[in-house]
Amino acid sequence: MEYVTPFDERVREPVAHAPRPEDLCGRTVALLDINKARGAEFLDRVEELLREHGADTVRAAKPSFSRPATGEQIAEIARGVGLVVEALAD
Protein backbone atom coordinates (compact mmCIF):
# COMPACT_ATOMS: atom_id res chain seq x y z
CA MET A 1 0.00 0.00 0.00
CA GLU A 2 1.32 3.44 -0.87
CA TYR A 3 0.99 6.32 1.58
CA VAL A 4 2.05 9.95 1.68
CA THR A 5 4.51 10.42 4.50
CA PRO A 6 4.07 13.22 7.03
CA PHE A 7 7.81 13.10 7.72
CA ASP A 8 10.63 14.97 6.13
CA GLU A 9 12.72 11.86 5.52
CA ARG A 10 15.94 13.66 4.71
CA VAL A 11 18.45 12.62 7.30
CA ARG A 12 21.29 14.94 8.10
CA GLU A 13 24.81 13.55 8.12
CA PRO A 14 25.82 12.94 11.72
CA VAL A 15 28.55 15.31 12.87
CA ALA A 16 31.44 13.60 14.62
CA HIS A 17 32.43 14.79 18.09
CA ALA A 18 35.55 16.89 18.22
CA PRO A 19 38.46 14.98 19.74
CA ARG A 20 38.65 15.28 23.53
CA PRO A 21 41.64 17.42 24.55
CA GLU A 22 44.38 15.80 26.59
CA ASP A 23 44.44 18.63 29.11
CA LEU A 24 43.02 22.09 29.68
CA CYS A 25 46.24 23.99 30.29
CA GLY A 26 46.37 27.11 28.12
CA ARG A 27 43.03 26.38 26.48
CA THR A 28 40.13 28.79 26.40
CA VAL A 29 36.80 27.46 27.59
CA ALA A 30 33.52 29.29 26.93
CA LEU A 31 30.94 29.06 29.71
CA LEU A 32 27.50 29.55 28.22
CA ASP A 33 24.76 30.58 30.64
CA ILE A 34 21.40 29.78 29.07
CA ASN A 35 19.77 32.19 31.51
CA LYS A 36 17.95 29.81 33.80
CA ALA A 37 17.72 30.50 37.50
CA ARG A 38 21.05 30.03 39.31
CA GLY A 39 22.82 28.72 36.21
CA ALA A 40 25.39 31.50 36.72
CA GLU A 41 26.23 30.18 40.20
CA PHE A 42 26.90 26.75 38.76
CA LEU A 43 29.11 28.25 36.08
CA ASP A 44 30.98 30.36 38.67
CA ARG A 45 32.07 27.16 40.41
CA VAL A 46 32.91 25.41 37.14
CA GLU A 47 34.96 28.44 36.15
CA GLU A 48 36.95 28.28 39.39
CA LEU A 49 37.74 24.61 38.81
CA LEU A 50 38.71 25.17 35.19
CA ARG A 51 41.10 27.94 36.17
CA GLU A 52 42.67 25.69 38.79
CA HIS A 53 43.42 23.34 35.88
CA GLY A 54 45.11 26.15 33.95
CA ALA A 55 42.34 26.99 31.53
CA ASP A 56 41.33 30.47 30.45
CA THR A 57 37.62 31.15 30.47
CA VAL A 58 35.18 33.46 28.75
CA ARG A 59 31.55 33.88 29.71
CA ALA A 60 28.60 34.10 27.34
CA ALA A 61 24.85 34.14 27.91
CA LYS A 62 21.78 33.45 25.81
CA PRO A 63 19.16 36.18 26.05
CA SER A 64 16.49 33.57 26.83
CA PHE A 65 16.70 29.93 27.88
CA SER A 66 13.61 29.07 25.87
CA ARG A 67 15.09 29.95 22.48
CA PRO A 68 18.11 28.49 20.69
CA ALA A 69 21.33 30.49 20.63
CA THR A 70 21.56 32.46 17.41
CA GLY A 71 23.92 31.32 14.67
CA GLU A 72 25.86 34.52 15.20
CA GLN A 73 26.38 33.80 18.88
CA ILE A 74 27.42 30.21 18.21
CA ALA A 75 29.87 31.36 15.53
CA GLU A 76 31.33 33.97 17.85
CA ILE A 77 31.90 31.41 20.59
CA ALA A 78 33.37 28.91 18.11
CA ARG A 79 35.81 31.50 16.77
CA GLY A 80 37.43 32.28 20.08
CA VAL A 81 37.54 29.10 22.11
CA GLY A 82 38.42 25.41 22.07
CA LEU A 83 35.76 24.07 24.45
CA VAL A 84 32.31 24.99 25.70
CA VAL A 85 30.51 24.21 28.95
CA GLU A 86 26.79 24.96 28.87
CA ALA A 87 24.71 25.39 32.03
CA LEU A 88 21.77 23.64 30.49
CA ALA A 89 18.99 23.59 33.04
CA ASP A 90 17.92 24.37 36.56
Binding site: Y3, V4, T5, P6, F7, D8
Partner: peptide, 11 residues
Protein backbone atom coordinates in the same frame (compact mmCIF):
# COMPACT_ATOMS: atom_id res chain seq x y z
CA UNK B 1 13.29 21.25 11.21
CA UNK B 2 11.27 19.03 8.90
CA UNK B 3 9.85 21.08 6.08
CA UNK B 4 6.09 21.59 6.33
CA UNK B 5 5.16 21.21 2.68
CA UNK B 6 1.42 21.38 2.06
CA UNK B 7 1.58 17.71 1.12
CA UNK B 8 2.97 16.75 4.53
CA UNK B 9 0.49 19.02 6.30
CA UNK B 10 -2.28 17.38 4.27
CA UNK B 11 -0.95 13.97 5.24
Amino acid sequence: HGEATLERVAS
